[in-house]
Computed example of a mutant assay.
Amino acid sequence: MKGLYCRAGAEPKFVIRETTLPEVLGSHLVRVQVKACGLSPLDLKLLDDVGIKRDLIPVGREVAGVALQVGAKVSFFQPEDEVVGILPLDSPCSGLCDVIDIDEHYLVQKPEKLSSVCAAGALRDALCAHTALHTHARVAAGHTLLVMDGASSFGLMCIQLACYHGVKVFTTSHSPQQHAFLEQLRPSVGVQDPLVAKVIPVFNGPADLLPAVLEETGGLGVDIVVDSGVRLQEEESEEAKLLPHKHDIISVLGVGGHWVTTHKDLQLDPPDCRLLHLKSASMSFLNHEVWTASSAQQGRYLHILKDIVEKMSAGVLRPQPEEAVPLYEATVIMESVQRRQKKKAVVQL
């Protein structure tokens, strides 16, 4: 049985290696035949920070498949159940193996209507969106939300989840094609009003962001901002110029607002902190890996996963379709994903 692994170094290398499973299944483990596996960039710095140091790091953690065998003390699943889940950071298994062993507390039942490819491809982004909006921002009906880069897979999940809860959503677009896509975004069920109240183009520069948000909110600013990256200095790469400056984000926040950032190394200067203080606003860092890195709220994590797959099955969350690739292309595809040339990939086994 083969699996995909990463050999860490100055330039990560992805290799396929033979792997075996123990003959005796652990009492709380579920043996799963993998049908689809999502590929996302490896955060090698995070693995080092939490003390996970290996010569070969397993690749592919979002999996969907069928339970083949369950351990003696497994209470949630039976053989032939369709399951979906995210392997923990310290998992010895690659999700791209035909068969893997995974603890039952990292799995939930997959609804019959939901395809394995869709579940594996969208689970990570949906978990990020749920964590950002519910765990950090405490979103509620009547709030206003600004989602940066709404056409990204993560941004799209934030928009759909927020609209489901009665939130007024604004978003930014990074190209004319993304702008048209977001303008035409409609829910799959119910009233067919646009999901986004205002799409703000930033592909000619982010200067229009603050005036547009203040105009739409009557000068009050938004209750919540969720970014997809932040520009710390004025002069950076062409790609970074599409990102908002940290001062712009703080400026669009209303009184008592909350900023959820995905920027891992964000630094706020004293004037930024002063502006946050004047608005009595707050900010938090989005690290969705905390759910599998800590067992303190494992029950809540499983509840979130179950809620996500049920919303995907019902059409509330509709991820951008990902074309599944075969296993023999996994190495090349993963290299593109790691270099951020491709945001997401799904391998069908």
Rank of each mutant, 00 (worst) to 15 (best):
G9P: 09
G9I: 05
A10L: 12
K13C: 04
K13S: 11
V15Y: 00
V15W: 00
I16H: 02
E18F: 09
L21G: 14
E23K: 14
H28S: 13
H28D: 11
Q33V: 00
C37I: 04
D43Y: 05
K45F: 08
L47W: 05
D48H: 10
D48R: 14
V50M: 14
R54G: 06
L56R: 05
V59C: 06
V59T: 09
R61Q: 11
G65V: 00
G65K: 01
A67Y: 03
L68Y: 00
Q69I: 01
Q69N: 08
S75C: 12
F77H: 03
P79A: 01
G85R: 12
P92W: 07
P92L: 11
I100F: 05
D101C: 14
Q109Y: 04
E112Y: 03
E112L: 11
E112I: 04
A119E: 02
G121Y: 06
R124A: 13
D125E: 10
D125L: 08
A126V: 04
A126Y: 04
C128Y: 06
A129Y: 08
A132N: 09
L133I: 01
L133W: 01
A137C: 13
V139N: 06
T144L: 05
L146H: 01
L146R: 04
V147N: 06
S153D: 09
M157D: 09
Q160E: 04
L161N: 02
C163V: 04
C163L: 01
V169N: 02
F170M: 15
F170V: 04
T171D: 03
S173A: 15
S173H: 05
P176I: 01
Q178E: 15
Q178M: 04
L182N: 00
P187M: 02
V189R: 15
Q192Y: 05
L195I: 04
A197L: 03
K198I: 05
F203D: 08
F203K: 08
G205W: 05
P206S: 13
A207L: 06
L210D: 01
L210K: 14
P211D: 06
L214K: 15
L214Y: 08
E216L: 09
G219S: 10
D223G: 12
V225N: 11
V225L: 11
G229L: 11
V230G: 09
Q233C: 13
E234K: 15
E236P: 07
E238H: 10
A240C: 13
K241G: 09
L243Q: 10
P244Y: 03
H247I: 08
I249N: 00
I249R: 05
L253R: 08
L253A: 08
G254T: 09
G256C: 08
G257M: 12
T261H: 15
T261P: 15
T261D: 10
K264L: 13
Q267H: 13
P270F: 03
R274C: 11
L278V: 12
L278K: 15
L278D: 11
L278G: 12
M283K: 10
S284E: 07
L286H: 07
T292L: 11
T292A: 08
S294M: 11
S295N: 12
S295L: 12
A296G: 02
G299F: 07
I304E: 07
D307K: 12
D307Q: 13
V309H: 04
E310S: 13
A314F: 01
G315L: 01
R318Q: 14
V325Y: 12
L327G: 02
M334L: 05
E335Q: 13
R340M: 00
K344C: 14
V347P: 05
Q348C: 09
